[in-house]
């Protein structure tokens, strides 16, 4: 892997560097930004905020509900045993199990969606620097075209960071 990146102490400086890279013609999806905390509300983090996750979770919930109803009907009709004079398909108790499986499915779908959309777990070789853990903010470009490295370094330096090359 080949990359050029810089580490910043301050999110504003990192944002300047990101803007510099954009000006140098790098597309947003190629600009890597990594932080040790979500820096809520900062413009640096503004991209890729939109997600369909709540709707995916809702779909998961519906799937769970349908599966629950299916399982309940299958289980209850397989042996039509009478207990306490209750109907074989007893909807009051069924509602409880339908609720639990709906929620379980919503939760599992949410976590699944998180894993898929956040790209975890992953073991591929990555642009990363352990100094992020100390609060540094990484801005960089992975696999840049050789011809543009100098201009990218320039843009990163303009933000005020320490440039590193891998």
């Amino acid at each position: 892997m080949k990359a050029v990146y810089a580490l910043y102490d301050d999110p504003n400086a990192a944002l300047r560097a990101v803007n510099g890279l954009r000006a140098a013609g790098i597309a947003d999806r190629d600009i890597a930004v990594m932080t040790a905390d979500p820096i809520e509300g900062h413009a640096l983090m503004a991209r890729e905020a939109h997600t369909w996750m709540p709707w995916v979770a809702a779909c998961g919930a519906v799937v769970g509900l349908v599966l629950a109803v299916g399982m309940l009907l299958w289980g209850e009709l397989a042996w039509r045993l009478d207990t306490g004079g209750m109907p074989v398909v007893a909807w009051w108790p069924n509602l409880i199990i339908m609720f639990e499986l709906t929620m379980l499915s919503a939760i599992l779908t949410t976590v699944g969606t998180l894993f898929v959309t956040a790209g975890i777990p992953s073991r591929r070789e990555k642009l990363y620097d352990a100094e992020i853990a100390d609060g540094k903010i990484l801005v960089g470009v992975k696999d840049p075209p050789d011809t543009s490295i100098a201009s990218l370094q320039q843009a990163l330096l303009a933000g005020g960071g320490r440039v590193k090359r891998v």
């Binding site: 040790a36 996750m53 975890i120 777990p121």
Partner: peptide, 23 residues
């Protein structure tokens, strides 16, 4: 799990926690 801390990961994590909290 190979966490990097990209804006995308942070946003997804916080969305997921919000949904989980509601559920």
């Amino acid at each position: 799990l190979g966490w990097e801390g990209t804006p995308r990961q942070w946003h997804r994590l916080e969305s997921a926690m919000g949904i989980m909290a509601v559920a």
